[in-house]
Simulated assay, not measured.
Amino acid sequence: MTLIQRYLFRQIGVPVVAACAALAGIGLLSQSLDQLEVIVERGQSVWVMVKLTLLALPQLFSVILPIGLFVGALIALTRLQREQELTAAFASGMTRWKVISPAARIAAIAAVVTLVMTVLIQPWSQRTAREQAYAIRTDLAALLVEEGRFVQGPDGLTVYVQQIEQNGLLKNLFVYLDDGKGGVRTWDAAEARFEQVQGQPFLTLTNGSMQEYSSNGVLNQFSFARFPFDLTPFTDSRETIRYKPSDLWMGQLFDPTPDLVAASGSRGELLAEAHSRLSSPLYALTAMALALSAIMGGAFSRTGYGWRMAKAAGIFLVVRVFGYGIVAASAWNSWLNVFQYLLPLVAAALALRMLFRALKPGRRSPALDRLKARFA
């Protein structure tokens, strides 16, 4: 790149990065508000909430980046055009393509980053988030223990803990179990801790006693220094992790197994998701093409380019909404997947056609003059 092109690259790139960062911040804020349930209702740590919030960002990236690219490019190009820096570049002998090539490079970089995000990072982050959510949902420690309250668990189990220390140690614990047949068992312990023994959950009680009142009216009692309370009967072993199409790798989407189709969706849905990931980077090119055509596709205006920017924004919005509609329709008609690529490419081509048109405002078309002369 020449010196002027490097200057234009910086002037356009900085607002684009700033706009994408601002949108990413808004996305993180909205996701963090959704994840507050993890702390409030599930008793998880702040780190778990932060982890789930960050893992949701790659899936939003295909939406955030084209919008940030469009907004940042409009801001940068408007300033360059208003201060007549683009006019000075044309006056120095630069062609229109040389002037817009820095913006095209930024759009290409954004497209490559989006492709890497959607193809590689998104399935990894979504699978990790799904596994973390499954671990939270099946975490008996979070479901059964709440400081200072009697918590009712499954199958007649009730647990009370007076104090929960930072290291996970439970102080003054009481466990009540009703077998549903008239028999009742209770445990009380000075300390307890949740542990995994050969992959199975146990509540290890220390320095306590156990009382059992059988259905035939017999009371048994004994004390213990250490007692492992098996929590396996209270876990739902039938529950498994169910992956959605957004969680799957590209190979699984294009060539799914019958079990995967039964668990995650139809073959049409998986194929539509695969083509959606591959076509998402094209919207970065469309966004930049529309931004360039809005500012440089017409005559210079001292009063601003608000109307042209509004039209470009409306066109981009319509194209993106139609893109989502095509993804949904492609799940039922696989031949529509080709339009996932054609729509952004056609929109970008039309925007570039407007940008490179030879006519200027007020100048008559030679083709129109010839046509009128033929029929005169």
Rank of each mutant, 00 (worst) to 15 (best):
Y7L: 09
V14R: 14
V16S: 00
V17L: 15
A19T: 06
A22F: 15
A24Y: 02
A24L: 15
A24W: 04
L29H: 03
E37N: 13
E41H: 14
V48M: 12
T53Q: 09
L57I: 15
G72L: 11
G72C: 12
I75K: 05
L80C: 08
L80Y: 03
F90P: 02
F90T: 13
A91Y: 05
G93D: 09
M94E: 05
W97C: 07
K98E: 14
V99M: 12
I100F: 06
A104R: 03
I106G: 01
A111N: 04
A111M: 15
T114W: 02
T114C: 12
V116I: 15
V116G: 07
Q122V: 11
S125G: 10
R127H: 05
T128Q: 14
T128L: 13
R130H: 12
E131Q: 11
A135M: 10
I136H: 06
L140Q: 07
L143R: 12
V145F: 06
E147H: 11
G148Y: 12
Q152N: 10
G153N: 09
V161W: 04
V161H: 04
E165Y: 11
E165F: 04
L169H: 07
L169S: 09
L169K: 12
L177E: 10
G182V: 12
V184N: 05
V184I: 11
E191I: 01
A192Y: 02
V197E: 13
Q198Y: 10
P201M: 05
T204C: 02
L205G: 01
G208I: 06
M210F: 04
Q211T: 14
Y213C: 01
S214V: 04
S215H: 10
G217R: 08
N220F: 13
Q221S: 15
Q221F: 15
A225P: 00
R226H: 07
F227N: 08
K244V: 04
D247L: 07
M250N: 05
M250R: 02
M250Q: 14
G251S: 07
P258K: 13
D259C: 01
L260F: 07
S266I: 05
R267N: 06
E269M: 08
A274M: 02
L278R: 00
S280G: 11
P281R: 03
A284G: 11
L285C: 06
A287W: 01
A287P: 03
M288Q: 03
M288I: 11
M296N: 09
G298E: 08
A299R: 14
G323K: 02
Y324L: 11
I326T: 06
I326Y: 02
N333Q: 14
N333F: 09
F339L: 15
Q340Y: 03
L345C: 08
L352H: 07
F356M: 10
R364S: 12
A367N: 13
D369N: 10
R370M: 13
K372Q: 14
A373K: 12
